[in-house]
Design a protein around this nucleic acid. Sequence first.
DNA 1: AGCAGCATGTAAGTGGTTACATGATTGT
DNA 2: ACAATCATGTAACCACTTACATGCTGCT
Lengths: 185, 185
Amino acid sequence: MPRRSQTDLAVLGALSTGPMTGYEVRRLIAGTLGHFWSESFGQIYPTLTRLERGGLVRRSGTGRTSGSALEITTAGTARLRELLAEPHVTTPPRNGLLLRLFFGSHLSSDEVESLLHQARDRAREALAGYETVRDDIAGDDSHEQAYRTMTLSFGEHAARAQLAWAEESLAALPAIREGSSRARG
Amino acid sequence: MPRRSQTDLAVLGALSTGPMTGYEVRRLIAGTLGHFWSESFGQIYPTLTRLERGGLVRRSGTGRTSGSALEITTAGTARLRELLAEPHVTTPPRNGLLLRLFFGSHLSSDEVESLLHQARDRAREALAGYETVRDDIAGDDSHEQAYRTMTLSFGEHAARAQLAWAEESLAALPAIREGSSRARG
DNA sequence: AGCAGCATGTAAGTGGTTACATGATTGT
DNA sequence: ACAATCATGTAACCACTTACATGCTGCT
């Protein structure tokens, strides 16, 4: 199983929603897709020129201010569908917060509490962000709306779960604190 | 902000639970930590030799069968605490399933259904796995138990959230199906 | 005798991050 | 004028994955 980049998929997908400049592709991926996908900016322009050379994308007039807008071609749409049908890979998780929590016995209980506060606050921020996204989507009644709602809903479920977990864990902390101080003497 | 590897942290943390061979470190990271952390095996042995050269880890007798067990040193424990106190980084998400779902309008509704089934089944499998982990932890009454339970609980919350989301989304599919067929003709 | 699992590594390749570099345009 | 944003790239570095290579031990 060769290590295949899914950057093409993300970029073609972005362009499938309409012509835009490379800068706008960047922003779309960092913004809307940001909750479940990320591309480093250093990848996007090289990918766009490669796709253009391959005839999957073409220049079409100028963008809003300067630069040229990019448009997906028929071949590009076909390629997008191919890529969508391929088995998906999700990068293995690397959650630095949970890694630290797992070895929490080496931390002071204040440090543990701080980690949990961070997790809780991050979940709250995510939820607040999703609310505005939901408002954006509401004004959109294309056939793409349903799928945006679906992915948004995933984010909301995940954030609510993290929030609930963080609050439960914070509530459990005093008992752990007692336990470890009893163990130490 | 230099791109810093957290492999040292994961490996030192693993060894902080007791002496073990490199092979066992591998297994611990792939198993117990696997739900929120991953290391590629090609990294572990080089890391161990580097840590040994740095005096953070030392050989101590032989493992269960062959090979030599590795033990964390006092300096290693100190380093571990340093690393734990550093700000954590969590790799940006790259969820191939959600990426595809987001562009679901280019997929047939059968393909979308299949993606959701995969998400649902994966969540169920995770939950089943967590159940056995919970049993393992129950027999362990060290002061580390509380933190294992905490990270396990995170996994359970996340898996339950994903399961609920997948089931809701599957239930919503018929309406989407209707909508898109109405739009097409 | 043979297989599964234990055990330890290496080497090539690549995907991706980060930082740097440059200039146009719009708003104040 | 000046700042912020739009816009397009490049180059170096590195972390990581994958595949390969090798031998031992315990069981049947």
